[in-house]
Every structure is written in structure tokens, then in C-alpha cells.
């Protein structure tokens, strides 16, 4: 479903701040794969996800989604393949627009925006039903501005928007990091539910090693722009946080350094 072939990305090339964010990274996901991504600060996790989204052009390598080469496709053109949830709850929704307007934008992801009326009563029914899946009561306040919602509600809405139009790949970039533990747990449960119910192919960056083990069928660990550990199936299920920390120390020759991971 997703083929990342030998991609590299260097930021600030030729300056003192030169940063090799990705070095010859390859990753192939099969349909229905749910990969969790862990790694220290600056390991290249977000860069990897953003390369898939097309936030910037990669220096070398290629990216294929569902057989289509998207390496040089601009960000908004790739959007039809991808569902995205960002770390910042403010980033995935338009605050000044109504809940149902946000839904309708997501529902039309990758399609033409024409001159027909945006919110038809038929579509409103669809959105209402979708919103009720969140169990947050948002279906009863569809004309409220999204800016009035809490961070957790906004993140849950962003998640729903990401899957409203079934994506080829769902990309979750530490999407629960900015939420309180209870809300984070709920949003994570929802993510897992959507992924398994729709058999979505997904990548989830997380700083929480327990979550990385508990969710998904595959786990990759990144360090200094490379994937240093890739595990799936039974072996992944039986992992413990201790195993991961030891693995990291053995493979990278240093302690696991992630300011947020240390807090967990």
C-alpha cells in the first residue's frame, strides 16, 4: 500500500545547521498494516511522515502509494490518498468554521470544489451519523464553531475528518501528545477502532512505548535518520518497554533520549 524507497532528506544543506534528517530510509507497508513509530528527539520520525505527506520535497528516493508514484506530487494533490492528524490539536481543523463545514471539507478531500452548494441536507445527515461515532455529543452542535471545542474534542474531530473519506494511508503524528492522559486514551482508542473497523493502513508516531507495543501489528524504531529496529507479529506482541530500551541501547550505542518518553 505504501512503499518508501531509499529516501533521504537533509535540512539546511551547506550551512552550520545542516541536519541529515533521513538517510536512505526504506519502508513497505501492506494493506491493513498498522505501524507504530518510536525514536528519540530528532530521530526523523516526523520528517518521515511529512515526506509521505509532501510537506517538502525529498532529496532522493521515491514514494509510492497504492501503486501511484507520488514523489513529486504537491501536498494538496497527495491529500486524496492520505488522512492526517497532527500533533497540535489546532492544526487539523478550521477554527472559524462550523463543525459541519469542517466535516464537509474533509468529506470532499481529494475531490473538486465546485460551485454547487456545500452543505446539503442529505450530507448533513451523513455528518451527523459520523459525528455520533465519537460519542462526544458533537452531532447535536454541528453549527458550532470548531474554535469553541476543547483540544481533545478537536483532535477527535480531526481524526474523524481524516477517515471520513477512507484514506489509503492514515498518518498520525503524536496526535495524543498534547492531550491530558484520559483524553489521550480515548482518542487513541478511537484511532484503533477506526483503523481496525475500516482495515486502514496506518502509521502512528508516539512517544509512549507502552502504546507503541499495545497498538498495531508492527513497530519501527528510528535513530538519527535511520530505521534501526523493525519488528512485527508475535515478536512485537511479546515486547516490553524494558526490551525496547535495551534494544535501543544495543543498536544505537546510547541511552534513549526523548524528553517526553522519559516522563512516561
Amino acid at each position: 500500500m505504501l512503499k518508501i524507497n531509499n529516501i533521504s532528506k537533509t535540512f539546511n544543506t551547506g550551512t552550520v545547521n545542516e541536519k541529515k534528517a533521513l538517510i536512505n530510509v526504506s519502508l513497505h507497508l501492506k494493506e491493513g498494516d498498522f505501524v507504530t513509530v518510536i525514536g528519540g528527539n530528532g530521530a526523523g520520525k516526523s520528517t518521515l511522515l511529512n515526506s509521505v505527506c509532501g510537506v517538502f520535497n525529498i532529496d532522493s528516493g521515491s514514494i509510492e502509494i497504492d501503486g501511484a508514484d507520488v514523489t513529486r506530487l504537491s501536498e494538496h494533490k497527495r491529500a486524496k490518498y492520505l488522512g492526517r492528524v497532527f500533533q497540535d490539536p489546532m492544526m487539523g481543523t478550521a477554527a472559524d468554521m462550523q463543525i459541519m463545514e469542517n466535516m464537509s471539507l474533509a468529506y470532499r478531500r481529494g475531490k473538486k470544489h465546485g460551485l454547487s452548494w456545500a452543505l446539503t441536507s442529505k450530507e448533513k445527515k451523513v455528518y451527523k451519523e459520523m459525528l455520533s461515532q465519537l460519542g462526544l455529543g458533537l452531532e447535536n452542535r454541528m453549527s458550532s464553531k470548531v474554535g469553541l471545542l476543547s483540544g481533545g474534542q478537536r483532535q477527535a474531530l480531526t481524526l474523524l475528518m481524516a477517515v471520513a473519506q477512507k484514506p489509503k494511508v492514515l498518518l498520525l503524528d503524536e496526535h495524543t501528545a498534547a492531550l491530558d492522559p484520559t483524553t489521550a486514551g480515548k482518542v487513541l482508542e478511537l484511532s484503533d477502532k477506526f483503523i481496525s473497523e475500516n482495515n486502514l493502513t496506518a502509521m502512528m508516531i508516539t512517544h509512549n512505548m507502552k502504546d507503541a507495543i499495545a497498538y498495531g501489528n508492527r513497530l519501527i524504531m528510528m535513530n538519527e535518520g535511520r530505521i534501526i529496529y523493525d519488528v512485527s507479529g508475535e515478536e512485537k506482541k511479546n515486547l516490553t518497554v524494558d526490551d525496547l530500551l535495551k534494544k535501543f541501547a544495543a543498536l544505537s550505542g546510547e541511552e534513549f533520549a526523548n524528553d517526553r518518553a522519559l516522563l512516561n
Binding site: 494538496h76 487539523g92 478550521a94 468554521m97 471539507l105 474533509a106 470544489h113 454547487s116
Partner: peptide, 27 residues
């Protein structure tokens, strides 16, 4: 106009360009 799909995508562009691009809008 601003109630149409196109008009709505225009409002989204001004409100949140990141979100707009993630939803396939040519900002």
C-alpha cells in the same frame, strides 16, 4: 458564492492553510 464548495474551501484557506492542504485544497 461563499456557501458553495469552492467558497468554503476559500474560507478554509484563510482560516487554516495547513488543514486545507491536508484536505486536498489548492491554497
Amino acid at each position: 458564492f461563499f456557501g458553495t464548495q469552492l467558497g468554503q474551501s476559500l474560507r478554509a484557506t484563510g482560516c487554516n492553510p495547513n488543514m486545507s492542504r491536508a484536505n486536498g485544497i489548492n491554497t
